[in-house]
Amino acid sequence: MSVSLEVDGSPAGCRAASRDIRTLAGWVGASSDMLAASMRTACGAWSGSSSDAFTDFAKERIHRADELHEELLLFAAAMEGLGLGLADVKAEMRRARNIAAGHGIPVGANLPEVGEITLEPGQEGPLDHAVGVANRAREHETRLQSAWQESLARVSKLVWDPAEISALVASTGKSLSGPLDKLSNLPGLSDVDPSHLAATAKNATGLLQSAFSTVTKGIDDALPGGPRVGPIPLIMLMNPHLMQHVMVTKAVKTASPPAARKIDAAIKGYGRGIQKVGESYCKAPSKVVEFAFDKAKAPGDVGESAGKSSKHIGVMHSATCKFVEHDGALKYTDLLVEATDAK
């Protein structure tokens, strides 16, 4: 049986990819160092539970990034090794071809074995030599590919967020922990039924509205007399993250990551809408009155307490938005603020 002299794979391509992966690894490592430096700066300039949360967030990412950095270096080295190995195999196949051709043995894509062709005197030994070289080169290639498969398998197991795995196998538990315990009485949260998550995702507005009320009340309790736009604390308008409503997202994530992603995206879209109202208010309070409060013309105390001048303030009863499902994700499409005259 003839022996193929063809070797698939591109040594130059492997070397180039290895270089690019090393470059990427370098940026991952440098980014991790930057994040660590940021964390140190934050630790010296910021204290409290929000600082602790940032530190936890940063620490986790630093560890993940350092691990990724290491894995990228290993992968780059493995790819470089594969490229070098393939170059060796190709060289050995050329050597086998030259041995045979140098003794007048006809060689195409394959090398004939002894007995397959009629050999001239003095050709059998060189052909046997050439076949041996080619066979060992093929074994070399097989071992290279085997080692490469191990590297590929290692990469296939890498994850960025370990929770991605745990969430997939998690039960449908709804318990909240840490700071979220304080928010566990959110209306509607306890009713989230994993079996109805799809419907919940499509009707996120109801959950958002209940969150809206809860957050507003919480701010009222915590910051009585703070600046407001109608009944809505200015802080809330300026900080849509309050509306992102992590308690719903986290609870649902435990039950169904795909549904959680939809709700998460929808909530963020909603937050952006709320933020627009807040930013508009700060830039031009009278305009946002016209925009958000329609024809409400009643005077209020919002402008003064917020340090802005405003003549016309209405009462915001509710803020809702519409969602449409597009390419499997919920997209925020519109913000509707319902308001009446403050009188």
């Binding site: 949360a53 967030f57 979220l180 928010l183 993250h241 409503h245 992590v246």
Partner: peptide
Amino acid sequence: QFQAAVIF
């Protein structure tokens, strides 16, 4: 705590 829970 809200900041801590929501932003990060």
